[in-house]
Simulated assay, not measured.
Amino acid sequence: MKLTDTFVKRKQGNGEAQKHSDGGGLYLYITPQGNKSWRLGYRFMGKQKLLVIGPYPAVSLKEARERREEAKKLLVDNIDPSTAKREAKAVAVNAAKNSFQVIALEWLEKYSVNWTAAYKNHILRRMEKYVSRPSANVQSKALPPRSCWRLYVEPKIKERASWRIRP
Rank of each mutant, 00 (worst) to 15 (best):
R43A: 09
V93N: 14
H122S: 11
W38D: 01
E66A: 12
Y29D: 10
W163H: 14
K72L: 09
A64W: 00
E87W: 05
P155D: 06
K9I: 09
A90Q: 14
Q12Y: 08
Q12K: 12
I79P: 10
K11V: 14
R133I: 10
G25K: 05
N121T: 12
V59K: 01
L26P: 02
Q33I: 15
L26F: 05
A95N: 15
H122Y: 11
Y29F: 03
L50V: 01
L50C: 06
N121I: 03
A88S: 09
R133T: 12
S135W: 00
L51C: 02
P134D: 03
P134K: 07
M45W: 15
D22I: 00
R150C: 08
R126H: 15
Y119E: 00
G13H: 15
Y152V: 04
N98R: 13
F7C: 10
L151Y: 15
A84E: 06
A64F: 00
E106G: 07
V91T: 06
A118W: 08
L74Y: 05
K72Q: 03
P57I: 08
R126D: 03
K129F: 08
A58N: 15
H122G: 05
V8R: 04
G13L: 14
H122P: 09
P57Y: 13
M45N: 11
P81W: 07
K36T: 05
S132R: 15
I53Y: 01
I157V: 07
A161P: 09
K2N: 11
G25R: 03
K9W: 08
R146N: 11
R160F: 08
P167M: 07
A64L: 03
K129S: 07
V131E: 09
A84W: 04
E87F: 14
L50I: 00
Q139C: 12
S162V: 08
V8D: 01
A136G: 14
A136D: 14
V52D: 05
I30E: 01
N98A: 08
E63K: 10
E154W: 05
R68M: 02
G23K: 04
K129Q: 07
N78I: 12
A161Q: 06
E109Q: 09
R160D: 06
K110L: 14
G24Y: 02
L51Y: 03
G24K: 02
V8Y: 07
H20S: 06
I30M: 06
L105S: 00
N94W: 08
A96H: 05
S162G: 09
R166W: 13
L26M: 01
W163K: 07
K156T: 04
M127Q: 10
V76N: 13
K73G: 15
V93R: 07
L28G: 02
S21V: 12
T31D: 12
Y111P: 11
K72F: 04
A92R: 13
I79H: 14
V91D: 10
T83D: 11
K36N: 08
V59G: 01
Y29T: 02
E109L: 07
R39E: 11
E128W: 11
T4Y: 05
Y130M: 01
N137Y: 14
Q12G: 12
